[in-house]
């Protein structure tokens, strides 16, 4: 298992195009990937669940379990924090 905490970067938070990018990236890994915010834990491969999960500046933990867990956490943490200044 791999996990990392990161801060939401995109201006609009996690929805719209940033959400679509996160979804696409998550689907590329065979690991189970979840995003954790507070006591909510959602499947990163579900657009319904990740849309509106967090606003810009909020903390999210990416957690993955499986063969490519490390790479998945790297890629998603980077996407989620992108645009940060």
């Amino acid at each position: 298992m791999a996990e990392r905490e990161t801060t939401v970067g995109p201006e609009e938070g996690i929805h719209g195009r940033p959400a679509a990018r996160i979804l696409k990236a998550a689907r590329g890994f065979s690991s189970q990937v979840v995003l954790v915010k507070g006591d909510r834990e959602v499947n990163a491969k579900s657009i319904i669940k990740i849309t509106g999960l967090a606003k810009k500046g909020e903390k999210i933990t990416v957690r993955a379990e499986g063969e490519d867990a490390e790479q998945a956490v790297d890629a998603l943490a980077q996407l989620i924090s992108a645009d940060e200044h």
């Binding site: 195009r17 979804l23 499947n43 491969k45 579900s46 657009i47």
Partner: peptide, 16 residues
Amino acid sequence: ADIFEFHAEMARDPEL
């Protein structure tokens, strides 16, 4: 197009 793509993703959503 983005709207319809979003809808397609929702239709295929694993949680749903």
